[in-house]
């Protein structure tokens, strides 16, 4: 059922029942072509291929990295202070991630695994992200 642009299916064939889908598709294509022709002088090629390179952010909160506006100090509102503590904690211990397996153990095990497999095909499967210390 493949039709090129130059080659057109005969009308009689399109009228047949099993060609209904193709008929519809051809009709759609024709419509699209008409549409494009109609707007060709309004919609420029530039508009067609333009992609948005800017992110619009109308809030200062995200531009200036403002802190949360609700704060409490010295036990005035324990509920808020607990939330503040929870929020500050991840920043404090961001450096060392909790690990079940130490870096050395992982390196040793991986080495063993490589020796056993020894194929170049396997190396491609290893994620190229190196584990940072």
């Amino acid at each position: 059922m493949a039709t090129t642009k130059k080659l057109k299916l005969p009308k009689a064939l399109l009228e047949m029942k099993f060609m209904l889908k193709t008929k519809e598709r051809l009709k759609k294509e024709e419509n699209q072509k008409d549409c494009d022709r109609l707007y060709s002088n309004i919609i420029t090629n530039e508009m067609r291929h333009a992609s948005e390179k800017n992110i619009f952010e109308s809030s200062f909160t995200f531009c200036e990295d403002l802190i949360e506006g609700r704060v409490s100090f010295k036990g005035m509102n324990p509920e808020i202070e607990r939330l503040m503590e929870l929020e500050n904690k991840p920043n404090a211990c961001d450096g060392d991630m909790q690990k079940d397996v130490s870096d050395e153990a992982l390196a040793k095990n991986m080495n063993k695994l490589f020796k056993r497999k020894g194929s170049s095909g396997f190396k491609d499967c290893v994620p190229n992200k190196k584990k940072k210390n």
Binding site: G69, F73, K74, M76
Partner: peptide
């Protein structure tokens, strides 16, 4: 001193 503040944008 103990205090609480809420600042609205």
């Amino acid at each position: 001193w103990p205090f609480e503040m809420a600042a609205g944008m």
